[in-house]
Design a protein around this nucleic acid. Structure first.
Lengths: 78, 78
DNA sequence: TCAAAATGTAGTAGACCTACTACATTTCTA
DNA sequence: TAGAAATGTAGTAGGTCTACTACATTTTGA
């Protein structure tokens, strides 16, 4: 996890909505393994794909992607 | 301009704030020509760089980048 | 006006993103 | 429990992003 990495909550959003990787990949028009790589943090998506992922989930980009780790559910937000 | 292109308002935001490409590039830690390529739409940035650009301008990602062209100032927003 | 600053174009090289295939492992469900 | 679905790992190949250098052109400002 280098200093250039981007954190994402794709798996969380996908779980919330009960969508499989294959479904998400199909909706986005990408290979289903690509979703796996993103969720495992092996690399971060292009901006084009990131914008479409946020659009798919109907949330701002910052809800899905961040330069800093996302807090866990229930943890304090100062 | 392929179907995979992302539109951006980097030059507009930069003009609003009176920042040169060189200044912006230095603040972001990228090569100044990289900013030129982005503004001319020759390619779109990585997600990592896009997030840092939005952070630099202190605006949501969607203010800087979009899957659709930005309306001009003063044009109707339906 | 003339120099400096800003911007545009061109080219090489390397790293990263994505597609795709194949197969192993885990989880779900009938 | 057996099969199906979902997920993880591995490897190749091609396209895109970024750094960097060099130089031309345009704009700015003293």
């Amino acid at each position: 996890m280098s200093a250039e990495d981007v954190y994402n909550r794709i798996s969380v959003l996908r779980a919330e909505r009960g969508v499989s990787r294959k479904d998400l990949a199909a909706a986005l028009g990408v290979h289903y393994q690509t979703i796996g790589y993103l969720e495992r943090g092996q690399y971060s998506p292009s901006l084009f794909l990131a914008l479409r992922i946020a659009e798919y989930f109907e949330v701002p980009v910052e809800i899905v992607f961040s330069l800093r780790p996302f807090p866990r559910l229930g943890s304090e937000v100062k």
